[in-house]
Amino acid sequence: MNEDSFWQLINECRPTGADPDSEQLAAALEARLMNGPLPAVVGFAEQLSWALYRLDRKEYGTRVSGDAFLYTRAAVVAAGRDEYEAVLNDPALFLPYADGFIWAELLLYVPGTAYQSLTGREWDRDTRYNYESYSNTEGWAD
């Protein structure tokens, strides 16, 4: 799955109404990915990790920390490509997510759930980019 396919899938699965904590988005993504093929699940995980990694920077993470920072970055991804790219270009746009405790933790579990549905096994694969908070050392350098 390339970056365009990733964002297209996010867009197609985003609900039209309010979606606190992105529950509906996660469920729709899981349903789509559970239909296979397996490389789409792996590709989704890779693209998700890259998107989250790119937001793992000092200019975004000073208001929240740890898991809250990760879940807030996931909410930016869940908002779709246009919002994500706007936040990348203007860190001030991250503040409403951080200050409003807007989270999308469930987005992080989508690849594992889809993988287990397709294979019957637990997800035990690392992605190329570590999306855990503060793993982007370049983004936190002075």
Results as ranks from 00 to 15, higher is better:
R73Q: 03
D82V: 15
N11G: 12
Y84V: 10
W50H: 11
E122W: 05
N2S: 00
G17Q: 14
L70F: 11
A78W: 00
G112Q: 13
R63Y: 13
Q8R: 09
D21T: 08
V41M: 06
P37H: 07
E105F: 08
Y131Q: 01
D126C: 00
E12R: 13
N89G: 15
E12C: 02
S49I: 06
S65K: 10
E122C: 02
L95P: 00
Y71N: 07
A104P: 03
S5W: 02
P37M: 09
A31M: 02
T62Y: 15
Y71D: 04
N136R: 08
Y134Q: 13
N89Q: 14
S65W: 11
R54C: 06
V64C: 09
T16V: 15
R81H: 12
A92F: 07
N136S: 03
E46P: 08
P37Y: 10
K58A: 13
P91R: 03
L33W: 11
A74V: 09
N2L: 02
I102T: 09
V42W: 05
G17D: 14
R63L: 15
L95Y: 13
V41F: 10
E85K: 03
F6H: 06
F101A: 09
A104W: 05
Y129I: 04
Y60I: 06
V87D: 03
A28H: 11
